Amino acid sequence: MTPKQQALFCISQSIHVIAGYPVGKSERAIIKGTAEGTLNKDLVNAWFDEIPNRNILINLKNSNLICIDLDQHKDGQNGVKAFSAIWKENSQDKKLDTYVEKTPTGSGVHIFFKVTSEVFSKPIVNEIADGVEIKTHFTPIYPSKRTDGLYQPFKQDDTLANVADCPSWLIDMIHKPPKKQMASKIGKRTYGAEIWELFNQGATEGKRNNDTNRILHYWRRIGIDPSICMDLLLAFNNRTSPPLDDDELTTIWKSVFKMI
């Protein structure tokens, strides 16, 4: 399926399409002014006739969808294993049967569910377990590509038409994780806790650029607004010894949020 075919299929399913850039420097960015997504066929045709290989993203909230983003990072984080345990405990042996994509690295997974618009009227948590994040804004979808790989359906012939309704127990969980699950994190430092500890301490000389990139990528991943991230970044830089100069700091910020 080409990006244009996928985009047209999405709008046929009332899934709001966002225009991205082709693989390369701006591959994670979106075209300015398209973040809300569209169901306009003429506009979608124009976008993908102009750049046939541009990446395609969708606005989850406006499409009444959520995405469970399962990450696997260093230090033993395994979102796939964590979500499998959550599903097994709560689903009453019901098989997970919805549209799922593999992310470009091959280790990440995006699981899609339908929800009602009322779900977004309450606060939604950023994660329900270490490595199990809840995406409600926008996300790239197949056949988008990055320099490290491509998004692809977990099942070869699967499509977004097969997104299932989100179970009620999972809706309850994304509004407020169960106490026993929160308790399981006590004594175990999550990746998020590590990042906020880094924020409080500031970067150290020799790691300033790397630490600044790490903290910005985390903030971007959990959906903090770019302008707020810059305010936080200035506070972080003031704790860094010695701090980065303003021009270098701005360059890193623009790079992470694909503004250059």
Rank of each mutant, 00 (worst) to 15 (best):
F120S: 10
Q92L: 13
D97T: 14
I124Q: 03
K114Y: 04
W87N: 04
E133L: 11
K145H: 06
Y99F: 15
H137I: 12
E89D: 10
S107T: 12
S84N: 12
K114T: 05
F120M: 06
T139G: 09
D97I: 08
E127Y: 13
S84T: 09
N126Q: 09
V115P: 10
F120D: 07
A82F: 05
E127T: 11
T103Y: 02
N90K: 03
R146K: 15
I128L: 11
F138Y: 14
F113N: 02
E101K: 00
V100P: 06
G106E: 03
T105E: 08
E133D: 15
I124M: 09
I111D: 03
D130N: 13
A129Y: 11
N126V: 05
Y142W: 03
S107I: 10
E127K: 15
N90V: 03
F112G: 08
E127I: 07
R146T: 12
K122E: 13
Y142C: 10
T105K: 09
T139Q: 09
E118H: 12
K114F: 04
P140S: 01
W87L: 07
T98M: 06
T98W: 05
P140I: 01
F83H: 02
V115M: 04
F113A: 04
S107C: 10
D130C: 03
R146L: 10
Q92S: 14
A85E: 14
S144K: 09
K95W: 02
D130P: 06
V109D: 10
Q92T: 07
T136D: 06
P123H: 09
A129H: 12
N126T: 12
P143H: 05
F120I: 07
S117A: 14
H137D: 15
E89F: 06
T98S: 11
V132I: 00
E118K: 13
S91H: 08
G108L: 00
T116K: 14
V100S: 09
P143E: 04
S107P: 00
P123F: 04
P140Q: 03
T116I: 08
D97L: 09
Q92N: 15
W87E: 00
G108P: 00
